[in-house]
Amino acid sequence: MSVLQIDQLRRQLREKFPAAHRDPLPVPGESLPQAPLEFSPGQLSEIISPRQSSGASLVISELLEEKRDLPLALVDGRDSFDPASYGNEKCRRLIWVRCSKTEQAIQCADLLLGDGNLPLILLDLHLVSERELRQIPAALWHRLKIQARESGAALVAMTPRQIVPTPHRRLTLTGRFSLDHLELKSPVLQLHNPESQKLAGKA
């Protein structure tokens, strides 16, 4: 089959099934279905933040607002969490692990998963550099996945791009904010689940 034929076939498929071929990254101004912020116990999920100001902190804020019996563990890969932005009341439901290196963060997440006492662990690699992200071997994610399954704790990795192989759930942050959102408007967390959209398109 020639290259031209393949291109033609792809175009026909794209025209026939536009939802299945939609770019997971949102088109500006287009409204996308909102995905709920729920994570299954014993599973590894990934939240991708393709742009730096797309609402990754709002995820932490939302999770801290939820009433839970045990606190949320935040493994902060770049030591970037700002308690003043959240308020003391919310921070009472948080265990903050301040890491200075990605390697430390992975180690801490591994320990907390192995311990299995806390139900939800947030591994924040949002501001980690591309070079450091590339140094995380894929086998390590498999190890974390197995640890999560054995301990029953949910691990949520917040990353700037797709790096976790086969997560249970992958969400993409699609928020776009302006200076008005800092004071005047209330920013709303915008999460998009490409998998569910693909499924919806197929259906």
């Binding site: 969490f81 301040r98 320990l111 299995g116 006492n117």
Partner: peptide, 28 residues
């Protein structure tokens, strides 16, 4: 907590990794 002693041990290990004063419940 399922096992408070194991959790306390985990916290000690975490503290050993990240260093003293870098683990806890934050407040402003």
């Amino acid at each position: 907590l399922k096992d408070p002693n194991e959790f306390a041990d985990t916290l000690r290990r975490l503290s050993g990794i990240v260093g003293p004063g870098r683990l806890g419940i934050p407040h402003q």
